[in-house]
Amino acid sequence: MAGEALTPTTYIQHHLQNLTAPVGEGGGFWTLHVDTFLTAVVMGLIMVFAFWMATRKATAGVPGKWQAFVEICLEFVDKQAKDTYHGKSKLVTPIAITIFFWILLMNLLKMIPADFFAIPLGWVGVHYWKPVPTADVNATLGMSISVFFLMIFFALKSKGIGGLVHEFLTAPFGKWMLPFNLILNIVEWLSKPVSLAMRLFGNMFGGEIVFLLIWVLGGAGLFGAIAGGAFGLGWMLFHLLVIPLQAFIFMMLTIVYLSLSEDSH
């Protein structure tokens, strides 16, 4: 697209295009979304570094500002995890902390205009870069599939293979309705990670499109610039609520699903 004049439609399509790299011959299903992968890794490293900075000089006395802020955030997530999860596993709080803050940082990239990434990258020959990993369904599905395997792990740890298989075949209608029980449980278990992924992806992808539409409006003369600025400010303020809310919902549903996977039916 370098050197071509972009219409509003092609401009939006351009910014919604991932930088891809085929894995193996032909790529296809195994095509890697390089921008999503690298950005997600960087945000994860930033999260780890931020927490490390808070604990590096942690004190039991009067904490510094950053340590106090991190402690407040961790206590908030820890309280939500303990109030929601009814089991005894010590893994739930670390999982909740990782999910919430990692998704929050990835979502926050939405507050940076797409051209702030695209233009500098274009100077070095990278013409496609989708900056928000959670606006890519591959990222949200990857996280939700990880949650799905955690659900299986927690269920097996609590009930064992025999108990889990017995529950799949006999709950909720009893052993005489085995085929219906099996179908219902398969649908229930598979729907959880799919809905988890699609909820986060839909909100972030939809918000990204609206931001791009507002950005296009801002280039339509003086009136467009004024209207784009007003709408952009309003949408940005709205997303100051949406961004942490979506991270919180993903975290809370994960905890609920892990708790339910241990419950007997």
Results as ranks from 00 to 15, higher is better:
residue 245 L to Y: 13
residue 219 G to P: 06
residue 222 L to G: 00
residue 250 F to S: 06
residue 209 I to F: 01
residue 208 E to Q: 05
residue 244 P to L: 06
residue 208 E to N: 04
residue 237 L to H: 07
residue 249 I to T: 02
residue 223 F to S: 13
residue 243 I to Q: 03
residue 246 Q to N: 14
residue 211 F to Y: 08
residue 231 F to V: 13
residue 227 A to K: 07
residue 242 V to Y: 01
residue 241 L to F: 14
residue 222 L to D: 03
residue 247 A to P: 09
residue 238 F to D: 11
residue 247 A to T: 03
residue 218 G to I: 02
residue 252 M to G: 05
residue 240 L to P: 01
residue 250 F to H: 09
residue 233 L to K: 11
residue 247 A to Y: 04
residue 217 L to K: 12
residue 210 V to N: 01
residue 227 A to S: 05
residue 234 G to E: 14
residue 221 G to V: 13
residue 236 M to E: 01
residue 226 I to R: 02
residue 214 I to A: 02
residue 218 G to F: 06
residue 250 F to N: 03
residue 232 G to Y: 12
residue 233 L to Y: 15
residue 231 F to D: 00
residue 225 A to C: 09
residue 222 L to A: 15
residue 231 F to I: 12
residue 245 L to Q: 07
residue 243 I to N: 05
residue 229 G to I: 00
residue 249 I to M: 10
residue 213 L to V: 14
residue 240 L to F: 12
residue 228 G to V: 03
residue 229 G to T: 03
residue 251 M to H: 12
residue 212 L to N: 06
residue 216 V to S: 10
residue 250 F to C: 10
residue 253 L to E: 09
residue 217 L to A: 15
residue 213 L to P: 02
residue 235 W to G: 03
residue 220 A to C: 15
residue 236 M to R: 05
residue 222 L to T: 05
residue 225 A to I: 07
residue 231 F to W: 15
residue 242 V to T: 12
residue 229 G to L: 07
residue 231 F to G: 03
residue 214 I to L: 10
residue 249 I to E: 05
residue 238 F to V: 12
residue 208 E to D: 04
residue 248 F to D: 09
residue 210 V to W: 04
residue 211 F to T: 05
residue 231 F to E: 11
residue 215 W to T: 09
residue 245 L to R: 09
residue 232 G to K: 08
residue 240 L to K: 00
residue 215 W to L: 05
residue 245 L to C: 15
residue 218 G to A: 00
residue 222 L to Q: 06
residue 218 G to C: 05
residue 223 F to D: 13
residue 241 L to G: 12
residue 241 L to W: 13
residue 243 I to V: 15
residue 215 W to E: 11
residue 237 L to I: 10
residue 223 F to I: 14
residue 212 L to R: 06
residue 238 F to Q: 08
residue 252 M to P: 02
residue 218 G to P: 00
residue 227 A to W: 04
residue 226 I to Y: 07
residue 250 F to A: 11
residue 216 V to R: 11
residue 211 F to G: 02
residue 236 M to C: 00
residue 220 A to H: 15
residue 208 E to T: 07
residue 244 P to H: 10
residue 244 P to A: 11
residue 253 L to D: 06
residue 221 G to F: 13
residue 244 P to C: 03
residue 225 A to L: 07
residue 224 G to Q: 13
residue 219 G to Y: 10
residue 210 V to Q: 02
residue 225 A to P: 01
residue 247 A to K: 01
residue 227 A to N: 05
residue 233 L to Q: 08
residue 228 G to Q: 11
residue 230 A to S: 02
residue 231 F to C: 12
residue 245 L to S: 15
residue 235 W to T: 09
residue 210 V to G: 00
residue 225 A to K: 09
residue 242 V to M: 10
residue 217 L to G: 08
residue 227 A to T: 12
residue 209 I to L: 06
residue 208 E to K: 00
residue 239 H to N: 14
residue 249 I to C: 02
residue 220 A to T: 13
residue 211 F to I: 10
residue 248 F to R: 04
residue 208 E to S: 12
residue 247 A to V: 02
residue 232 G to Q: 11
residue 226 I to N: 08
residue 244 P to E: 09
residue 243 I to H: 01
residue 218 G to L: 00
residue 209 I to Q: 07
residue 217 L to H: 12
residue 226 I to H: 13
residue 210 V to S: 03
residue 223 F to K: 15
residue 219 G to F: 11
residue 238 F to K: 07
residue 246 Q to G: 08
residue 250 F to Q: 04
residue 234 G to A: 15
residue 216 V to N: 08
residue 233 L to D: 07
residue 215 W to C: 10
residue 245 L to D: 14
residue 236 M to W: 13
residue 250 F to K: 01
residue 241 L to P: 04
residue 253 L to C: 07
residue 215 W to V: 10
